[in-house]
Design a protein around this nucleic acid. Sequence first.
DNA 1: CACGAGACCTGTTCGC
DNA 2: TGCGAACAGGTCTCGT
Length: 274
Amino acid sequence: MPELPEVESIAARLRSGNAQSPPLLGARILSARVFWQRSVAEPPAEIFVQRLQGQTICEIRRRGKFLVCELEGLTLLVHLRMSGDLWMEPSSQPVAAHCRVALSLDSGYRLTFHDPRKFGRMWLLEDPERVLGELGPEPFDPGLTSEAFFEKLSSVRRRLKSLLLDQRFLAGLGNIYTDEALHCAGLHPLTLSAQVSPSQAERLLACIRAVLAEGIRRSGASIDWVYRGGDFQNYFRVYRRTGLPCPTCGAPIRRILLGQRGTHFCPQCQVLPS
DNA sequence: CACGAGACCTGTTCGC
DNA sequence: TGCGAACAGGTCTCGT
């Protein structure tokens, strides 16, 4: 599921809480349970459980698609991959069917790591930079100027779609927002990064930011049975709209396979340069 | 260096 | 209705 806007929305919800549940921020962990060992990447599950006990959640933020929880001298990282979600529920409630990790809190609530496909991972680290250090810049980093972005695009020779999905190049984009950003910028997903002009690079960066900002404003996208929260799925221009008219020009949206990922674009607005 | 295929997983939807 | 295939928000590893 979650790309940058979804993780940002989840982080915001866990920070402040809502009408149904108190914030995760400031809560103390009474105990942790792991129901699927491989959901914990590091350390081994028994140690993970031991070290979490008694820790207080001091800060909650996002880096790329990672949720970052600062504890007392330790950092809990969560990556939701395809089907993961995090929510708070009363501790008295039975544990959900696809709950992989549960943290019982002193607020009487439980943080549930729900993940039907079991691709998601948690890390408990003294130095989170060991994992986060691999990531490229944040899309909204003011230091990422259009000139710098153009230089980055020129420095490699890759198809735009696969490059934008590469978290070492830019952190946070996934399949939805990449397709939407390329459509917004009028660039074909197979365009080689080194062929992009400075003005096209500027436009692409602006589109990436615009599409992510819209996603955040709508609290992310909810598709299928995974993640319920936002409504950005009602505003997709190309993603999962194969055969439907392009909102810009009316041509039917086309779907191709690129690196095993469904890729959606408008054949009229996004032309591949020869 | 860059790409595709396969692996990791389960659930839903589609086509016959 | 039933059943298999296709598909799904991600990332890693391996072979070419």
